[in-house]
Design a protein around this nucleic acid. Structure first.
Lengths: 370, 370
DNA sequence: CTGAAAGCGCTTACAG
DNA sequence: CTGAAAGCGCTTACAG
């Protein structure tokens, strides 16, 4: 299909000037600039780094001459050399436990990355995505044979679940990092920016109680993630305080039809579902089963789709500020890496609050509805 | 901010541990590894770079000891230093002319990044996203004050449009890079992986002709991008060959209602629209105007939405293999960076072919339909 | 087999 | 004001 382009390129290479023998691009260096401008290499550096230092003042005439040569040659200082010389490499690593970019339907990280990119741009750092760590069984290992974390000045950790031992090892190593999502491991020494799921879930529970519900059902994920525990905790505490209990079941999404049958026989008036996708599926199952939502069954989602799906239903749900999560994580990491350590100290563990969206799937219960 | 690193480091050295004076983690160096393993720094380097050279063979016992220390310390060679010393970092840069991650509705890069990530994982390279270059007026500048391209071994360039001068400068600099999308600049010396829009558009034009259409209208983008020209070229050549002409208009999407009025008075039987989003809008405008699609007006989109939108219409359209584009670009860049230059030479300019999707918006024309 | 040494391109005290 | 020099952390001939 593209066989002929090949030929074109060969021709180009042959007469293009660059020898095939040398892979090494010839780089313009400060020494060359210095020669051309008739100054020392150090002076070029001084001009470039614009030292306004009173002790190191370069006459305008010289400075102009050097700058002119730099312009003419389109010279750019080698970042690697600058970095080695101690100017820092302004590199923030991003380690995702799963693929960072949407594969199949998984699109968990995108909004986080959007926030991260914006913040990275603001503070002028580049982002290093650790894609060289292979994804095995859906997970990347933080510490593997050829760990390259140190390529970056510090690192952001993203993932639903993180291995506690790895996390502990990482804090112990003194490497600056920030987890996205609350992490309890390592005796609370993990710096993170998380979402206050407990509070938001509690508010949602309160809404249901105030609507008159008394029969609760909660279908949550089997993950052992903090975020799952937080939601459960928020729900339980609010319901318990009001004197209610809640039926609970776990799903990984593969058995939703069966789950629906169990829910149905439990006869709740309101159903809390951790995963937004599951909420959609269950709502469809309910409707297909002749149960109208929310008239006969209210459904509350404890999360939301990353982006609008085809599903038209505007669930009563909670909405995590994912972009903000990303940008705040960058800010915290930056602070940890370069912070002055003085009174402006940022808390190393932050929870951002979560919005409750009223939606249309919560209504007052109808007695004996299901 | 970094000016006093020297000083800070001294402090650290003096008391042998983490001083309060600096948050800066003390970097593990080969010298420390060497000390811990009881070998010379050069030996550590030798072990790391796995020289199987017969002249430089290190006893397994020593090698193992060194490797163990490296594992324990999670040491990783400083990429900047490696670069300076003349080796690669297994680092592929990604330069996007706009924000890489979806901001607002723009989601142009995501599928490309998905493909790139997969390929990067396969060949074991990390991805360096150049987010430090600020986006000004929606565009990032490749060559700006503090250009850091050289931190990576090579770079992928992504963007609808690229500045020809910048591209020329980049080839001239001998820095290995691959553009995603066909680029004509620099006398055809730009390595790229592009999409064969011309061929696919021509096929679509043929379909329309075969359906009996004779009145064509083409609404395309005002971008000066190669991809826009390719589509136009594919459409024109096919129509011209069949003895037809085509009405043409440009839009940036802000004036679609007006565009529709003009289209309407031109009375085409088939409307080609470059942008998928515009196609959706125009279809709605047509329907709202009492023109039924495709019975009275066929609409063909020369692109598609990145992901399924709410829009239910299954357009007759072309579909670019964006993930493949990403992964092939990585493969090509890898080849350019590490290629042997022998007979297995990959073409430096590749076009991948584009799928035509039949859809439901192309039908035989009805005489005097509009 | 392994260490000492040169050098990559820069920044920044430190001397003239 | 400006140059000579040390040093950043590494790789790689080159000697032991």
């Amino acid at each position: 299909m593209y066989g002929n382009t090949h030929h074109q390129f060969r021709l180009n290479e042959e007469n293009g000037g660059g020898t095939v023998a040398t892979n090494r691009p010839e780089r313009v260096t400060q020494r060359m600039i210095a020669e051309l401008a008739g100054v020392s290499q150090a002076t070029v550096s001084l001009v470039l780094n614009g030292k306004t230092d009173s002790t190191t003042r370069i006459p305008d005439e010289t400075r102009e001459r050097v700058l002119q040569v730099i312009r003419d040659t389109t010279y750019v200082a080698d970042p690697a050399a600058r970095r080695l010389a101690g100017v820092g490499n302004s590199l923030i690593g991003i380690f995702t436990y799963e693929h960072a970019f949407p594969h199949e339907s998984s699109d968990f990280y995108t909004p986080l990355l959007t926030g991260i990119e914006g913040a990275a741009e603001q503070i002028g750092v580049d982002l290093l995505m650790f894609t060289s760590a292979p994804v095995v069984q859906g997970r990347r290992r933080l510490f593997h044979e050829n760990n390259r974390l140190r390529l970056a000045d510090g690192c952001l950790l993203l993932g639903r679940e993180m291995d506690a031992d790895e996390l502990t090892r990482l804090v112990d190593s003194n490497y600056p990092f920030v987890a996205i999502g609350r992490r309890d491991a390592a005796d609370g020494r993990i710096p993170y920016v998380g979402v206050d799921y407990a509070a938001a879930t509690a508010r949602l529970a309160r809404l249901a109680i105030e609507s008159g519900h008394e029969q609760f059902y909660y279908l949550h994920l089997s993950y052992d993630a903090e975020s799952t525990r937080d939601r459960k905790e928020g729900l339980n505490s609010e319901l318990t305080a009001a004197g209610f209990t809640v039926d609970t079941a776990v799903t990984d999404g593969s058995d939703l039809a069966a789950a629906w049958q169990r829910i149905r026989s439990a006869r709740p008036t309101v159903l809390f579902v951790e995963d937004a996708g599951h909420a959609e599926a269950l709502r469809d199952l309910a409707v297909a089963d002749g149960v109208s939502v929310p008239a006969e069954l209210s459904i509350i989602a404890l999360g939301e789709r990353t982006r609008p799906s085809g599903h038209a239903v505007d669930f009563t749900r909670l909405s995590a500020p994912r972009e903000e999560l990303g940008s705040r994580a960058v800010a915290l990491l930056d602070h940890i890496m370069n912070g002055t350590g003085d009174s402006t100290e940022l808390p190393h563990q932050q929870l951002v609050s979560c919005t409750v969206i009223a939606g249309t799937t919560l209504a007052a219960p109808r007695v004996g509805s299901i």
